[in-house]
Design a protein around this nucleic acid. Structure first.
Lengths: 251, 251
DNA sequence: CGAGGGTTTGAAGTGCATCAAATAGTGTGG
DNA sequence: CCACACTATTTGATGCACTTCAAACCCTCG
């Protein structure tokens, strides 16, 4: 009896989570009902591989909490990070358009709650609900824009600037007084996210301190104002400063 | 009278061109009729700017022939190439999802024929025709995949390998005997497309010759077999060799 | 407390960028 | 058809940013 109730709660929470996600705002009741019936939610710990690049895809995923790394690797094991996602983001969904093969591997990098849903539900909703298809196109377009920016950054920003830019995108919209940022995951991962070595990250962060007067202690970054950081990082970027609106696959 | 006939021919050709493009295969007759009425085709020469980053967007574009560069630039004029497109590819269409602002600038880099179409036609078709919306999602997913690969390449391939990889993607599927490739546009542009300086491109191409035995003369590249090139470039990539199926915005 | 990873620091090497200049190629007007 | 002007491409020399390898330090968690 306890188990049944627990599952019921879980499933209820799943739909609640999905309803809060902007991408699903125009989804049909049929969609939500099917997700309620077929979702499974799992608590995953660091290191768990959810699927591998080129795996046959049955499901897509929604992150309820935690962090997940998407990446690909070459035969010799060198790995390239595609993205690192958190709460309310979806992944694995593009397999629908890729012959049902995942275009990257997915690994949990912080303790996470992951919602697991059949791709078929999503596919049906896209085909039957043109509003949702439209929203999904918008989401893809934003993601594409973000990837373009990523390529640009790696072309024209140096390591300290890339870190500064990343920090700026972590700040919440209107900060007042002293600004405090917590790095969302460990520095090794951050380095790979930004396309550099951990050693380079460490040195670049130190340089960023000297150049902009931010204070770094462990995973905490403090500063009085964003101005310095903006002047330092955004000079080497084609976007104007409050550049957070570029969005992501789940928005 | 002559002018009228000429325009009629032009418009007829426009629709013919669009019908051949895979992305539009499921478009409605209403769509094709509207494009016939509202399309304008222009011959553009090298250097022509079609629109600027952040411009208010009214139209999207289809390339009938030639080459177009999409790029963004920082205040100091440094530019980052987003993509370089040719025949049957569309661009500017994502402005629909970006508050009607173009997310990049577009410049003609070789003499080109460009078809000019109102975004409203496309938007209507997406909303009314779920098959087309679905195809468009597929196209976006493939583009996204391609961008992911681009980031990966810049991370883990060096300059000569990136050139080799690019050459491999230029070869047509089943080559027999001696293989000849013509570089599609000038080397400066190619360099920026691959994220390197012209000087680096020149040296890297020479290195690629020494390492793989390809013969380069001007814009022509000759080789007996792809094997050498595959071994040299694809080692530093997460995709298996015939990796051309990754597609593009127009496919 | 000790083991094992994350992080920092140091030293050296490498690849690409940059600056400068020579050379090749292309289109122009005479 | 040639010479000039201009641009693309190549070559050389040098510098810098990031990587790599190695070792120390630090943290946290059993």
């Amino acid at each position: 009896m306890i188990i049944v109730n627990y599952n019921a709660t879980f499933k209820y929470m799943t739909v609640t989570t999905l309803r809060k996600i902007d991408l699903f705002k125009n989804c049909s009741e049929a969609f939500f009902q099917k997700t309620e019936e077929q979702a499974s939610v799992q608590k995953q710990s660091k290191g768990k591989m959810l699927f591998l690049h080129e795996d046959e895809a049955q499901n897509f995923y929604v992150i309820r909490s935690g962090w997940v790394k998407l990446f690909r690797e070459t035969l010799d094991g060198t790995q390239a990070v595609v993205d690192i996602l958190t709460q309310d983001h979806i992944f694995g969904e593009t397999a629908i358009f890729q012959n049902n093969l995942y275009p990257y591997s997915a690994e949990v990098v912080e303790p996470s709650e992951i919602i697991n849903l059949p791709l078929s539900i999503l596919k049906t909703e896209i085909k039957d609900n043109s509003k949702f298809a439209y929203d999904m196109l918008g989401s893809m377009a934003r993601y594409r824009r973000q990837q373009d920016r990523e390529i640009e950054h790696r072309d024209i920003q140096n390591a300290p600037q890339r870190i500064g830019c990343f920090l700026l995108r972590l700040t919440t919209q209107q900060e007042e007084g002293s600004i405090v940022i917590h790095l969302p995951y460990d520095k090794m991962l951050l380095a790979s996210r930004l396309g550099m070595q951990p050693e380079t990250f460490s040195r670049a962060l130190k340089k960023l301190q000297n150049e902009t007067g931010i204070e770094v202690k462990g995973a905490t970054v403090k500063m009085d104002t964003l101005d310095q950081l903006v002047r330092y990082s955004c000079a080497a970027c084609s976007s104007e400063f409050p550049c957070k609106d570029l969005g992501n696959a789940a928005e």
